[in-house]
């Protein structure tokens, strides 16, 4: 599923520093809920992993050994050890382990390049860690957490319908 164009266009208009701050906040929140997130990476934790959503104008580079995440405008990110690109929803579904990485690869819905050993380690680590983005991130909404989580879960269910 592609991100709706008006939504993507709106996000793309946001200033880079603002997106960087929001993404870093989310990253810290996720790490706080999943402190063992990068345990399975072992020696590959010092690689840089780039995520290129094909329907969004930003790239995200994750450095597990930091740990930190850096946002770039699409096409401006430096080379990384391994790169995965595909629709944002597919990347998020992979992050949560809602879909199988091999199946998505077979379907050609995403492409990977670079160090496949590092990419495989990251994929397996993410698959085991039990991400649940609506649950993990709703805490940021304070008293609005329960309705926001329900809304996010409904959006996710709709986005995942019919995916591999």
């Amino acid at each position: 599923m592609q991100l709706p164009r008006p939504l993507a266009a709106s996000i793309n208009c946001l200033p880079l520093p603002l997106v960087q701050r929001a993404v870093a906040l989310v990253f810290r929140q996720v790490l706080a809920r999943h402190p063992g997130l990068f345990d399975r990476l072992g020696p590959y934790a010092n690689r840089r992993f780039r995520f290129d959503p094909t329907d969004l104008g930003f790239s995200f580079v994750v450095y597990p050994a930091g740990p930190d995440i850096t946002v770039y405008r699409a096409g401006k990110a430096p080379p990384a050890s391994a790169t995965v690109s595909g629709p944002l929803v597919t990347l998020l579904a992979l992050l949560e382990g809602q879909i199988d990485g091999d199946a998505v690869f077979f379907s050609r819905s995403l492409s990977v390049s670079g160090d496949m050993e590092a990419m495989l380690a990251l994929r397996n680590g993410l698959d085991d860690c039990g991400f649940d983005l609506p649950r993990d991130l709703s805490g940021l909404a304070g008293p609005f957490a329960p309705p926001l989580q329900r809304l996010a879960e409904a959006i996710r269910a709709r986005a995942l319908a019919g995916m591999v």
Partner: peptide, 10 residues
């Protein structure tokens, strides 16, 4: 065994 948990479940 190399597949993700979503594959195993399905």
């Amino acid at each position: 065994r190399q597949r993700g948990k979503a594959y195993v479940a399905e």
